[in-house]
């Protein structure tokens, strides 16, 4: 892609963070519901956020 790399990155970061939180947070929440625990939602959210940031780094950080 051409010169708008920063701009692209900005929007992609937003999308990745949302889907990371949604997906892994959702898994954690389902796990909590299933097992009757309370901490899995938090774990899922953290994993999701971490994964999303890792993905952003993979896509835009390494060069």
């Amino acid at each position: 892609m051409s010169g708008n790399r920063e701009e692209n990155a900005l929007w992609s970061i937003f999308g990745y963070l949302i889907s990371g939180l949604l997906f892994w947070g959702g898994i954690g929440w389902a796990g909590d519901r299933w097992l009757g625990t309370t901490y899995l939602t938090l774990v899922g959210l953290l994993v999701g956020a971490g994964g999303a940031i890792y993905l952003v780094w993979l896509r835009f950080g390494r060069e």
């Binding site: 992609s12 999308g15 889907s19 997906f23 892994w24 994993v47 994964g51 993905l55 993979l58 896509r59």
Partner: peptide
């Protein structure tokens, strides 16, 4: 599948990528 990532990490990343492209966007 993001290139240059150890295989087990795909378990973490692939769902996020798919969710981004097909749901979140």
């Amino acid at each position: 599948f993001m290139p240059g990532v150890p295989k087990p990490v795909y378990i973490l990343l692939t769902p996020i990528e798919l969710a981004t492209f097909f749901l979140v966007r």
